[in-house]
Write a protein that binds this DNA or RNA. Structure first.
Length: 409
DNA sequence: AAATGTATCAACCGCCGGGAA
DNA sequence: TTTCCCGGCGGTTGATACATT
């Protein structure tokens, strides 16, 4: 055991990541997937260890990160989860799509702990503070015994059951993030979210390389957004050809058709290692050729699920059966049922759904400039704006949050 | 305006477990 | 079985921004 071998290597950079490094890593992963992390730095031309690259991707560059301030609902959920799970940050983070364990850990240590103590609650035991455990006294937080925790809800008991966690809400993380990206861009010449950086890189790639550097199926697995941008039939709007709008439309379209994953059964936890995971190009490009919007939706969900679970798979549904299911789902009010299942996520998505079905207009096209993502030069300003992200107005975030109901998984 | 204290957060450290050789 | 590699996790640190005096 001991330190990771890469840590012994000299001449490896440490500390904060530069915009150039971010660009290299993002470009590499969006193009090839990460594969073996230890080989990523070399392949991406980075003087970093694989662990550092992995951490940077997971905590910062991943396109499905939500960022922004935590809502009260999120804080409450974290507290509830911590009462059950203890300092198992990764498990807590798994219940908060778009949030990283690091982010939650930081929030806990810097903010929530203090709040709980102010309320007279021991943040470690979640019980009233006693004289034997004065405020400020820090004991190692162990997962509380569930049997002792009478206040644990059924919901939380479900969360800590041995069953694999159900898939995340099918249209929350990625779309939410993109919505945030679109809406939070007050300065059209700067990049303020990871999503924008991701868009910027993928759009840049797709435009500069004439969409030909990698076969389609690989794109679907490793870079669904780029794949969307290259499949105009998926777009809700064909009025605007600029790439950023295309992506917004694609992600919007996935929001328009809330289809129960249980019905479609396309994204499952049992995962066939994809191109992304394997880091190797796939030679089979015929079987998974996708040309329906709903397939694209599943891809998008696959991306969202994938980003949480690192891997995803396609079911072995035939193309025709998929289409039949899609037609059925589009003709039935299944989306309403699904929304009801999501306990309140309906209002927002349904409103958008109706609007978009009738109008086929890109939701965010009016928020973009023609040349927003024309080149990669925005990375520097994006970096400069990173710290400001945490200062984004909470109303924007909470608006997004209304579309998710984390209590519903 | 400067000094000091506090909060926040990105990143590193070190350990662990799984899997391959 | 042992050793090594790797990914993942939780704890901690250090830099920076912000607030207060």
């Amino acid at each position: 055991m001991g330190r990771h071998s890469c840590c012994y290597k000299q001449k490896l950079r440490k500390g904060l990541w530069s915009p150039e490094e971010d660009e290299k890593l993002l470009r590499h992963i969006t193009k090839y997937g990460h594969g073996c992390w230890s080989s990523v730095p070399k392949q991406a031309g980075l003087q970093r260890c694989g662990k550092s690259c992995r951490l940077r991707w997971i905590n910062y560059l991943r396109p499905d990160l939500k960022r922004g301030t935590f809502s009260q609902q999120e804080e409450d959920l974290i507290i509830e989860l911590h009462a059950v799970l203890g300092n198992r940050w990764s498990q807590i983070a798994a219940q908060l799509p778009g949030r990283t364990d690091n982010e939650i850990k930081n929030l806990w240590n810097s903010c929530i702990k203090k709040k709980l103590r102010q309320r007279g609650i021991d943040p470690n035991t979640h019980k009233p503070l006693t004289e034997t455990n004065e405020p400020g006294e820090d004991i190692k937080a162990a997962p509380p015994n569930n049997s002792d925790n009478k206040s644990s809800s059924k919901q939380l008991q479900l969360l800590v059951s041995t069953e694999p966690a159900p898939p995340p809400p099918p249209f929350m993380p990625l779309e939410d993030g993109y919505h945030q990206a679109e809406c939070s861009t007050s300065n059209k010449n700067s990049i303020t979210t990871t999503k924008e950086l991701f868009q910027l890189v993928t759009c840049h790639e797709s435009s500069s390389n004439s969409m030909s550097y990698v076969p389609l199926p690989q794109l679907t697995a490793s870079n669904p957004l780029l794949w969307f941008s290259q499949n105009p039939e998926l777009n809700c709007s064909n009025n605007n050809n600029n790439n950023s709008t295309t992506i917004a439309s694609a992600s919007t379209s996935s929001m328009m058709l809330p289809v129960p994953t249980s019905s479609m059964g396309l994204i499952t936890p049992q995962c066939i290692p994809s191109y992304w995971e394997a880091g190797q190009p796939s030679s089979n490009s015929s079987g998974s050729t996708l040309n329906s919007a709903a397939n694209g939706i599943e891809l998008q969900r696959g991306a969202a699920s994938f980003f949480d679970n690192a891997i995803f798979q396609w079911s072995d549904l035939t193309h025709s059966s998929k289409e039949a299911q899609i037609q059925q789902l589009e003709s039935e009010p299944e989306d309403l049922k699904w929304s009801e299942y999501l306990q309140g996520t309906f209002s927002m998505s349904a409103a958008i759904h109706g609007q978009n079905q009738n109008q086929s207009q890109p939701l965010y096209s009016d928020m973009k400039t023609e040349n927003q993502f024309e080149n990669i030069d925005g990375l520097n300003s994006w970096h400069q704006g990173q710290h400001q992200q945490s200062l984004q107005p909470p109303d924007m975030y909470e608006k997004d949050f209304q579309r998710m109901n984390i209590h519903s998984f």
